[in-house]
């Protein structure tokens, strides 16, 4: 006990700065990539190079997201990357909660915008922690008992199983449980994005990168812009998947699983296609 406290105090500065750093790399960086991938369900609709089996515009979103997921799953040492990420999040969370508990909110007296953000930074941190845990546990670790409808996410059926998890049902309906999950997702990603964008702003002060009030304001504009963009991607992702019919998405995914079999369909058209014309 005493040695542990001794370590925490001796390495106080290092741990505080690691806490700040892990929020940006790898967590923040991952957040940007993750939201880019997930919002492909929306921007993928404009993706002309999406899998050729996706004809309709909405199918292109499903196909693009599937391709993104396949690419990520093909990365070398993906499990190692994931573990580094999970450990970083755990570290950032444990120390974040510990540090947050040293302060006492006083927005009732000092109603400044910065003070509200100070409070929100801590509250969104708690929400993001709960949300990320739920998100990873259900969709990555397969704790399907926490998902209304019991969906397990499957990377080969990336869109359909995600849509089913958000809707609380795989059969094209939306259940009450699904609505609650989707709303929790909105709250969770909104908190996460705010926490990241605002944290990026304060990190520049913490590290002494922005010193003058003007520099802090300029960097604030950059963080606001980044946060707005990420927020748009985050909401687009949730709306995109929550409004997606899992059955239709599954048809695209199955076609892709089939067409990704060795013989390239364009080079040798399957002979089965010709007979039906009488």
């Amino acid at each position: 006990m005493s040695t542990r406290q001794g370590f925490l105090e001796r390495r106080y500065f290092l741990l505080r700065r690691l806490h700040s750093l892990t929020g940006i790399v790898p967590i923040g960086l991952f957040l940007i990539m993750h939201l880019t991938t997930n919002s492909s369900i929306v921007w993928g609709m404009m993706n002309k190079r999406a899998d050729h089996s996706a004809h309709a515009v909405s199918e292109r979103g499903v196909a693009t997201f599937q391709e993104e997921v396949n690419w990520i799953n093909g990365l070398p040492a993906i499990l190692l990357i994931e573990i580094v990420l999970w450990l970083s999040i755990a570290f950032h969370a444990v120390f974040g909660v510990y540090y947050a508990r040293t302060g006492r909110f006083n927005t009732d007296r000092y109603r400044y915008q910065d003070n509200w953000r100070y409070m929100l930074q801590r509250i969104t941190g708690y929400i993001a922690l709960l949300f990320i845990f739920y998100h990873v546990a259900t969709l990555r670790w397969g704790w399907s008992w926490l998902v209304p409808g019991g969906t397990t996410w499957d990377h080969a059926y990336a869109s359909s199983t995600l849509a089913a998890a958000l809707r609380g049902s795989a059969d094209g309906n939306v259940t009450i449980g699904g609505v609650l999950v989707s709303l929790f997702y909105v709250l969770g990603v909104t908190s996460s994005v705010f926490h990241f964008a605002n944290g990026l702003w304060t990190a520049a002060i913490t590290w002494g990168i922005t010193i003058s009030v003007q520099a802090q304001r300029r960097w604030g504009m950059v963080c606001l812009g980044l946060g707005t963009g990420l927020m748009a991607m985050a909401w687009a992702s949730i709306i995109g998947f929550a409004t997606l019919d899992p059955r239709k998405a599954q048809i695209v995914e199955e076609r892709m699983l089939g067409t990704h079999a060795p013989p390239a369909p364009e080079a040798t058209p399957p002979p089965a296609e010709s007979p039906p014309e009488p």
Binding site: N106, Y112, R117, Q121, T206
Partner: peptide, 8 residues
């Protein structure tokens, strides 16, 4: 490091 940047 204990400053939380509330800027009050």
């Amino acid at each position: 490091s204990d400053c939380g940047n509330a800027q009050n």
